[in-house]
Design a protein around this nucleic acid. Sequence first.
DNA 1: AGAGTTTCGGAAAACGTTATCAGCCCCCGC
DNA 2: GCGGGGGCTGATAACGTTTTCCGAAACTCT
Lengths: 362, 362
Amino acid sequence: MDGREPGVTEATLRDVARASGCSVATVSRVLAGTRPVGAETAERVRAAAAQLGYRPNQAARALRSRATGTVGLVLPQITNPFYPALVRELTHALHADGRAVLLADCDDDPGAEAEHIADLLARRVDALLVIPAHERRSRKAVAAAAERVPLVLMDRGCGAGLADSVAVDNTAGMALVLDHLAATGRRRVCFVGAAGTASAAAERRIAYESGAGTLDPDAPGRVFLGDFSVEWGRAAVDEVWEQRPDALVCANDLIAVGALQRLQQLGVDVPGRIAVTGFDDIPMAALAAPGITTVRQPVAELAAEAARLLRRPPEGGGPRPHRTIRLAPELVVRESSAPPQGGRRPQGTPDNNRTAKLEEAQ
Amino acid sequence: MDGREPGVTEATLRDVARASGCSVATVSRVLAGTRPVGAETAERVRAAAAQLGYRPNQAARALRSRATGTVGLVLPQITNPFYPALVRELTHALHADGRAVLLADCDDDPGAEAEHIADLLARRVDALLVIPAHERRSRKAVAAAAERVPLVLMDRGCGAGLADSVAVDNTAGMALVLDHLAATGRRRVCFVGAAGTASAAAERRIAYESGAGTLDPDAPGRVFLGDFSVEWGRAAVDEVWEQRPDALVCANDLIAVGALQRLQQLGVDVPGRIAVTGFDDIPMAALAAPGITTVRQPVAELAAEAARLLRRPPEGGGPRPHRTIRLAPELVVRESSAPPQGGRRPQGTPDNNRTAKLEEAQ
DNA sequence: AGAGTTTCGGAAAACGTTATCAGCCCCCGC
DNA sequence: GCGGGGGCTGATAACGTTTTCCGAAACTCT
């Protein structure tokens, strides 16, 4: 119907050259805009290209110009509820720069992560965005990659000074939570966090310990550590209960969800008797009942910063100091931390905060 | 440290050839295994390649062999809670075949979808995996793409007979739910679904209408339609209430979550007074309290089938009939549909079904 | 032992771009 | 009138693979 032969083959630069009556070099120039070209010729070329539906072969372009217009995104587990939103913003930011995103899910395995990174390098990605699977065990592969292409670490750290990095300011976030709890009259807070040296775990824990003192001199000591899971959140309630806390500061939303579940199971009034807070603002935090007060990571801004770092390559010749960007988070107050005076759970206002309309339009 | 010059350049086939004392052709052959080659030479080549840390340049390979080893994955919204798990399984299945995944998130916009598809084709993906954003408006771009590369539709339809497709058997899933409700003594069920012609919406609605008759001749008529969102789930409860149902069959888990929230807000006992069921088994279904009985999509199998379809290309010359694969889902019984006799909510057994340990190890 | 047949290795031609290097023409200034 | 800049343009050499196409051996078989 479009006049092409059965052996449907893509229009190439030569075809456009032939059709517009000039050389491949000229066509390349007008299409890439690398060097000035006569107005009339340019017009002819453009017309021919449009008419033939020409699309440059990215493989050839990549081979010749040693740039694929492609960025590798390596993450531990896409099913981690915090990541889909981040991935979404990252792909949008990168697509806006005309770069495509090669996705690799490592299943939390540093070995698989190393393989994926190597594969992406062989595919000649222009840059890498890595959320390391492990603070220590990811280091080697990341370091090796970082000296071959621009690399930005996201969300989690990976030892010191390996590469540029972008993450939320966990310390500021924890301060927001503690201030809020203090302002709404909570006095006996406990921290339910995650053990280990992973940056989010450590930073949030330390931020709590150094910030909780204003509430109660003993508060910094009431720290309970497990992992970043709903299960631990459930279990932590039983551990923490003998401390008679009036607020549970959880190191992320999953822990908070677990804690909330267990508290409700025990018939404890939240927030009347005890407040619960989370971190990250995953979708589930808004949908829990009561909605969970949490710290929203500025996902779009994190993505934008990462894209910006990749745009501006190492420039200087020598080993330039790595750029570390920390973005301020935002406190999202929901019912789980409403002031305790009204002993009853607030009804009828499920979530007045801007809840992304979570819609699954299948 | 590794002896390379500052102008760090990748080892190439020529380098390996020089180092092993044979020609590029031979090196290519032993590394690609396309043709038999002398055992001793092969060994020398392999040693040299390993020693130089040679990795084939995929751009060059793609240019020459017209295959990039890359698959485009186009989806409407990665933040849709059902998709992360699917994306995870897809990337794993494709990586196992040695293919990389280019991810494109369309933000539910068919226009953006068309652009992404065109871009992926320009990047010479070997195949496309598409979850169409819109039943009708995605059709054109998908059809155009389908005649250039192997294309598999997933999860949702896109008009008739465009391409191969893989999805869950919605009809079978709905039957599982209705059988379960009948077996546990529910008699007045209502369906809370989504309007429109999108395949999941339509198929689940029709499956309900044709299957609910065995419970109660009037049941097929008790159908309430909105969209696939938590908000609609909340609102639907109020609409449906005057029907005095003892079971709410929701067309997906988000609706079920919303319905459950509203019911709890109204102080209605679930499952004592009324059962609630969902569809898809998103993570939130397991974590709601009570856990939501739902239909689990066989995500890993769906991904495996899609990968399989892509592996086996259209083969025959002529326009071969499209393959449509429907996989049977699995009923996951949780507390929200426990038999009504015990008027009290079951305590202390939050979710004995195999709940993936949802962990956010930051 | 000679002809056919396999096996292995190299030279070289693609693949579709981009970048370099000349060439051409026209115009300017002496 | 003539040498020398500038704009534009066309050949052509890369880029790093894969893939013919060929020779040169080394076998096999009569």
